[in-house]
């Protein structure tokens, strides 16, 4: 069967609809036209809470760095935590912007891409978690100082600190490679797909798969 024959079938169907399809005006009038079932508003509220939390944390870290300028190790650790907080904050701002731009009158590909980028937000945190692996110590130093008033650094053997920093510095290159690899463009690679699914969940993986489908569709 050729496409032209299918078109003929559809034309027949169209004629049938012209004859038989009726609008149920009473049912239409009964719909509450202001009450959408979409969850966009809920997602937006979550992202705004996230944005406010990161802003407060970034401000707090700024203040922490300023008050510990005299203690280099605390200032450096605070700065590292601060940088990652700012990256997460930028991600949240991007999410809120995307959510504000969701408009069903936009072309399909453009809108779907924005929605799936919102849905795949979890991947950013997984990537940040991996990327910050060599400097996880900074989180521990800052947290112990803030919550328990314990300066971990002074209890560490200097040789251990140097070895730790060197070994972790070497980790940076593979981690940057991993950071770039964990993308929807690489979902065809089994371990990438599994890693993303394991760390960020099915919803994120499906969103990324659809982003991949969109890219394929544009080709």
């Amino acid at each position: 069967m050729e496409a032209s024959e299918l078109k003929n079938i559809l034309e027949g169907y169209d004629r049938k609809l012209d004859r038989n399809l009726k609008l149920n005006s009473a049912a239409l009038k009964n719909i509450n036209l202001e009450k959408s079932k979409k969850k966009t508003r809920t997602v937006l509220v979550h992202r705004v809470i996230e944005l406010v939390s990161y802003t407060l944390l970034a401000l707090f870290m700024g203040s922490y760095i300023a008050t510990h300028l005299g203690q280099t190790h605390l200032a450096i650790s605070g700065s590292i935590v601060g940088v990652f907080t700012l990256i997460a904050l930028a991600g949240s701002i991007g999410q809120v912007v995307f959510l504000q731009q969701i408009d069903f009158t936009k072309p399909l590909v453009e809108l779907r891409k924005k929605i799936e980028l919102v849905n795949s937000h979890g991947l950013l945190f997984v990537k940040l978690l991996f990327l910050s692996a060599p400097i996880w110590w900074s989180y521990a130093i800052v947290a112990l100082d803030i919550f328990l008033d314990i300066d971990l650094y002074v209890h560490l053997e200097p040789g251990f600190v140097v070895r730790y920093i060197l070994i972790n510095a070497l980790l940076l290159i593979p981690l940057i490679w991993l950071f770039k690899k964990l993308s929807y463009k690489n979902l065809h690679i089994k371990w990438v797909r599994k890693t993303i699914g394991f760390f960020s969940g099915t919803k994120t993986r499906k969103a990324l798969e659809f982003l991949n489908d969109i890219e394929e569709f544009k080709k």
Partner: peptide
């Protein structure tokens, strides 16, 4: 369907 109904010429469900 609820908002759109398919009926035949005699008004019965199709």
């Amino acid at each position: 369907a609820s908002i759109f109904n398919m009926v035949d010429e005699n008004g019965k469900d199709e």
